[in-house]
């Protein structure tokens, strides 16, 4: 597998002699190992975008409210804005850019294709987060995890529209493409 090492820029500011702690970490991003030396304050989102050059996860609110920075982290949907990169040394991250596997036709994951089919976006800014969140959500539902609107906590999950809406509530779309997003996920869920 490809391996990318990166030289870090000089953080020394001319205005201060304050020591800025740094740490060396390895992140596996879309199948490639990245060795990065980061200021300990760097968020995972900034490490992905500004240091590893993967601009698929988007910075929307940067406060965990919009979901546009969602990736799959060690297989689960995860925000990257409320995460310090140093705390995720060794993590395996899949962004929307790396979702498609070798078996996927035209380099699109089936959920990505469904978003196109159902017109599940307008400006597209929230889309990488929406898609990663949908993939993670479908996995959660597939192993029977209940949600706030699940009537019987111990029954099998039936991914009704109400269930999909609730489970996707951490991803906002300011264009309001929710109807298309719902359709895309409904199809991805096999309904």
């Amino acid at each position: 597998m490809e391996h990318v090492a990166e030289h870090h820029p000089d953080h020394e500011s001319p205005h201060t002699s304050q020591h800025v702690p740094e740490q060396r970490i390895t992140l596996r991003i879309d199948g490639t190992d990245h060795e990065l030396t980061v200021d300990t304050r760097t968020t995972l989102l900034d490490a992905l975008r500004e240091r590893a050059g993967n601009t698929s996860p988007k910075k929307g609110c940067d406060h965990g409210q919009c979901g546009s920075c969602t990736v799959l982290l060690d297989g689960r949907r995860h925000l990257t804005c409320l995460a310090l990169a140093v705390a995720y040394d060794g993590a395996e991250i899949v962004t929307a850019a790396g979702l498609a596997g070798p078996a996927d036709e035209g380099d699109l994951h089936p959920v990505q294709q469904a978003f196109i089919t159902h017109d599940g976006f307008q400006c597209g800014y929230c889309t990488p987060g929406q898609v990663c969140s949908a993939v993670g959500m479908l996995e959660e539902a597939g192993r029977g995890a209940p949600s706030h609107v699940t009537a019987d906590l111990e029954a099998d999950v039936d991914l009704t529209d109400e269930e999909i809406r609730e489970r996707m509530s951490g991803n906002l779309c300011r264009c309001g493409a929710y109807a298309g997003i719902l359709g895309a996920i409904r199809e991805s869920a096999g309904r």
């Binding site: 949907r77 925000l79 995460a83 969140s133 993670g136 959660e140 209940p146 699940t150």
Partner: peptide, 11 residues
């Protein structure tokens, strides 16, 4: 299940 979002509950 009434708290936060799916992503945040994973974290």
């Amino acid at each position: 299940l009434a708290g936060a979002s799916g992503q945040i509950r994973n974290q």
